[in-house]
Design a protein around this nucleic acid. Structure first.
Ligand code: SF4
Ligand code: SF4
Lengths: 147, 147
DNA sequence: TCTATTTCGGACAAAATTATCTTTATTTAA
DNA sequence: TTAAATAAAGATAATTTTGTCCGAAATAGA
C-alpha cells in the first residue's frame, strides 16, 4: 500500500506530533527507537518532511524534531503520503497506466475508482492531531508488542 | 497498490479470458504485445497462475494459454491477486506491522480497515467474466492509446 | 522421424527500494 | 573557545523487484 519510507514517515509524524502536543522536542534516535525503524533511513524521510515544512528540525544538543502546535490539526495524512510517495495513490491505477483515461478506461476502472476515492477521502480527512491523541490515551500503538 | 507482476497477471488473465470466450488460445507473444508487457517476465507470472490452475497452458506449435470457459465466471480478481501478491492486500497494514492487532491497533486502524474492506469486497466480487466482456464490447482497454 | 514452435526452468542482469556508514555542519552549554 | 550533541549530506551496501537470456522439454505437423 505505502512504501516503507512512507510508513516510517507516518509513524514518525504521529509520534512527533504527540510529543509536540506535550511540548517536547524529540531526537532522531528516540523516534527510531519508538517506532522501531532504521535510524539513518528514517532521517532521510524526516528530512523530506522538514524540507516542505511539515516538521521542524533543529541541530545541536537538545535539538531534534517537532511540529508547530498550531499545525498539528491541519496536517493531514494525505500531506505526509503525498510528500513521500507522491500522487501514486491518487492517480496510480490498479493496472498501472501512465495516465488514467476515464473516457476509455481499463476494465477494472469502475470497480476500482470507488476504492481509490475511499482511500483518498480517508487520507484527506485524517489529521495528525486525532491520530496522536489516540496514542496519548493509550488506545493505539506505534510498536508491536514484544513477543 | 499491486506489484508489476500482479498488474501483468491481471491484464493477461483478462485478455486470455476474452480470447477463451471466443474459443481462441493465445500465445505468450501475443499476450505480451496486447497488454504491453515484457514477454519473459510475463511468462513467469503466467506460470504461477498455471500452476494453481487458474489458466491452462500447452506447449508446442499452436500452443499457448487459455482459461476453461466454465471457470471464467468463477475466477475472481481476488484469486489472481492472491496468487501473485499473496495476502498482503488483506492482511497488510498501512503501518506495516507483522500481524494486525485489532485489540491494540495502530493509530490509523479504524480509518484504514474500511478502505481495506472495500478493496477486499471489490476483488472478491469481480469476476474475470465481467471484465472480459467490457473489453469485448469495446468499452474498456488494456493498452494505452498510442500518442 | 525431423523440424519448427511454444512453454518451462534456471541463471543472470538491471533497476529500484531500503538500509548503513562516514563525514560535515550547526548548535548548545560548559 | 572548546567539546559534545545533533541533524544534514553523501557515499556505499544490501535486498527486493523487475526484467532478460538461453537451453531444455513438450508438442504438432510435415
Ligand atoms: S482506467 Fe481507471 S482503473 Fe484503469 S488505470 Fe485508469 S484510473 Fe485506474
Ligand atoms: S492496527 Fe489496523 S491499520 Fe494498524 S497495522 Fe493493524 S490492521 Fe493495519
Amino acid at each position: 500500500m505505502f512504501s516503507k519510507a512512507c510508513e516510517y514517515g507516518i509513524k514518525a509524524s504521529i509520534y512527533i506530533a504527540l510529543q509536540s502536543i506535550q511540548g517536547e522536542r524529540v531526537s532522531l534516535k528516540k523516534i527510531a527507537r519508538e517506532i522501531n525503524s532504521p535510524e539513518a533511513f528514517t532521517a532521510k524521510v524526516l528530512l523530506q518532511l522538514a524540507k516542505i515544512d511539515i516538521i521542524k528540525s533543529s541541530k545541536g544538543p537538545s535539538g531534534g524534531f517537532e511540529i508547530s502546535k498550531d499545525k498539528i490539526d491541519t496536517i493531514m495524512l494525505a500531506d505526509i503520503v503525498f510528500a513521500i510517495d507522491g500522487n501514486s495513490i491518487y492517480e496510480g491505477c490498479a493496472l498501472g497506466f501512465d495516465t488514467c483515461n476515464a473516457t476509455k478506461p481499463c476494465p477494472i476502472h469502475d470497480k476500482f475508482v470507488n476504492v481509490r476515492e475511499e482511500l483518498k477521502k480517508m487520507l484527506l480527512n485524517t489529521s495528525l492531531y486525532e491520530l496522536a491523541t489516540g496514542l496519548e490515551v493509550g488506545l493505539t500503538f506505534l510498536k508491536q508488542r514484544k513477543s
